[in-house]
């Protein structure tokens, strides 16, 4: 049963991810993105990481894509605006794809993957308490740094977008 659901949601996620990349209409792409996030959330549910699943929907599907849609609507992007893919983009994406394949191969060929589920430690994102605990102990520094980076980004946007009054 779980396997069946896994294949279903994995197909959904991948299919919709391809949809995001290949759809010409930005609104279609955004809708595919939502479906991708929902598929990922379902995969998290299958892994019994309910917290992550819900956060995935809450943050990405519920807030980030709404902002995407907001921007797409305001910019009024036309479907016809095809732009030619630069050769550099091709090279970069090929390298990225190769690295991804390499990573997958590396993980599947290592010994960790063969370990049974009993011997695995409980995932940090599986339960709320673990998640909070890990976030405020082991991963305290990365969290603070991330927060700081986001703050800098936000201030940067404000500085860039604010018109400076010049006395003339």
């Amino acid at each position: 049963m779980t396997d069946l659901f896994f294949y279903l949601f994995a197909t959904l996620t991948l299919g919709c991810a391809f949809g995001v990349v290949f759809s010409k209409n930005p609104v279609n792409a955004a809708m595919f993105l939502i479906m991708t996030f929902l598929g990922m959330a379902s995969l998290f549910v299958l892994l019994e990481a309910y917290f992550l699943a819900v956060i995935q929907i809450l943050v990405y599907a519920g807030a980030v894509v709404v902002l995407f849609l907001f921007i797409i609507m305001l910019l009024d992007v036309k479907e016809e605006n095809k732009h030619r893919v630069k050769p550099l983009t091709w090279v970069a994406s090929l390298i990225g794809f190769a690295l991804l394949i390499l990573g997958v191969v590396a993980i599947t060929s290592s010994d960790n993957i063969k370990a049974t589920s009993e011997s695995l430690p409980e995932a940090a994102g599986a339960s709320l308490k673990n998640f909070g605990y890990e976030l405020f102990t082991t991963y305290q520094l990365p969290m603070q740094v991330t927060g700081f980076l986001l703050l800098i980004a936000m201030i940067g946007v404000i500085v860039l977008s604010k018109k400076v009054k010049t006395d003339s």
Binding site: F51, V54, L58, A61
Partner: peptide, 10 residues
């Protein structure tokens, strides 16, 4: 409660 917020935000 998170589930509720998440789904209702959709």
């Amino acid at each position: 409660i998170l589930f509720l917020f998440a789904i209702s935000s959709l």
